[in-house]
Amino acid sequence: MASARFETRRLTSDAMFGVCAACAAVIVTLLLLVSGYLVFIGAGAINLSFFTDVPTGDVAQPGGMRHAIEGTLILLALAAAIGVPLGVASGVYLSEYSHEWLFASPMRFIADVLTGVPSIVVGILGYELVVVPVSRWTSNSVSFSGYAGAAALAFIMIPIVARTTEEMLRLVPKTYREGSLALGASKAQTVLRVVLPSAFGSISTGIMLAIARVAGETAPLLFTALGSRLLTRDPSEPFPSLTLQIYTYATGPYPEQKNLAWAGILVLLAILFVVNLLIRVVASRHAATRMGKS
């Protein structure tokens, strides 16, 4: 009897394992299919000039995407420079100071809502809040700019970074905080020297996710950075980005440009892959020091 029950239990366990393994296999297969397809199509259009040339204006010989690759990297760096400090600071506030001050739960709620706002809305917001006022200020007709694009991307990043930072800080054991305070550290010292560093790995993972999320965004840039065919490093001008260029080429009628779009998608994915990998290395190295393996 007991062994029969044991038998059913083993069967259930095996069945559960089977179901989970099958689901995992489906996901992995899908992922491999998609990336395989992308590599298959995109790789054909990738050559050295893709990385070194800028658009020629000739639809049969459209040139490369150097301007867009650089533009995306610069936009991401700018967006992170704005969004990460603001997001981390808000997360620290929510986790460490919120019970002392007001606004915490409205803030948390707003952050959650903002995380779900469609990115096209962010684009329009960027247009209304940055592009239009700046145009008025400089008396330009319309001041589309890299800064406006970065601000829109940062706007998407902030709530994500804030909420992950908050969650990760909450996971830091209370004993660290007490230990630090008991030694006569101020609250700020405790947060900066003990709490934040011990959550560094997981917070940087959150930042990476936020960067990865905005790296693929097109809509917020449509009305802000606008896109450009020129190789520019001046973010006060209309600014190129991979996604905008892919969008332009992919929706256009010319096959050579469509090929470039595929290549662009592949490069975009490669960038995301590298971002993921880099920060994963940082995080795991950090985890290793925390576990004492350094």
Binding site: P173, T175, Y176, E178, G179, S180, A182, L183, V194, P197, S198, T289, R290
Partner: peptide, 11 residues
Amino acid sequence: GMVFQKPNPFP
């Protein structure tokens, strides 16, 4: 100075 029940070295 204070020492707690569970060792709590900082990471």
